[in-house]
Amino acid sequence: MSSTTVESTPSSPRGAESRAQRSGDGTSTGPGPSFLRVLNSEFIKFRTLLSTLILLGSTVVVMVGFGALSAWGTGQFSEAAAQDPEAAARIAAQGGDLAVTVPTSGIAFAQLILGSLGVLLMSSEFTTGMARSTFAAVPRRIPAFAAKLVVVVLTSFIITAASTLVAGLVSVPILDNYGLGLDLGSSQSVKLLLVNSLYVAAVAAIGMSLGTLIRNSAGGIMSLVGLFFVAPIAFQLIPGDFFVEARKYLPGNTVDPLTAVEHVPDTLEAWQAGLVLGAWVVIPVLLAAVLLKKRDV
């Protein structure tokens, strides 16, 4: 069943007039999908979805709301404690730690929302068929994956950092009411803001990898919830030293060691926690990239 085609160059007269280089094996000379162009495209895709903007807005609302609520709760607690010498002693022992974690008290919800966003941005490509357009324009695929990852990670970091800052600004006057000071410029405040924002960005990257691997929105989000919300509880409930030890290595348990003022016994060292979180990001991302390149769209 061989084709009988002879190498001919059938350029019609009209074609020859209007587009001299049309026929033959010439490929176009215009700009191709460089990484920056693909990044721009992914950013356009990101900002032109209403659902994305709603999720980003929700993150800010939740973070600021929980910050304010936590400031109020912390204030109440400290007032009650002042009348109770024992409690007062406990707070004194913890120093300023009580107030300093107030701005990031909504982080568990931010990680859920932005992690889900990470899942959705990739899984929706496959569920809607958009992936065919995306990867037809960028057949090498990896640039599109990397560009989307950059958009997801950067946005998650910026939104978390910004909403932590706003939550802090809202919390300061509330805490002040109860005579509690919160210095947003202190090194511990800055550390908490940066580490938590990096952490949420990492969760979003894990989410995007899950979305790429599973290609299904519900499945991806369920896996994410399983990893960050179900596994820590399950590991606590299952008896045995193994699970006690393993629990430390769950990605959700790396933030506390990373932000601790002093190392707490029975937790990872900060550098260990950093490596563990890094591995939780790098391994799924690489796996997702390799399989995305290999699998059919």
């Binding site: 215009g30 700009p31 191709g32 999908p33 162009r37 693909v38 721009n40 495209s41 992914e42 356009i44 895709k45 032109t48 357009s133 324009a137 960028v138």
Partner: peptide
């Protein structure tokens, strides 16, 4: 916006 995003990949 779909077309705009596709177009952006190739300037």
């Amino acid at each position: 916006n779909h077309l705009l995003a596709m177009a952006a990949t190739h300037s």
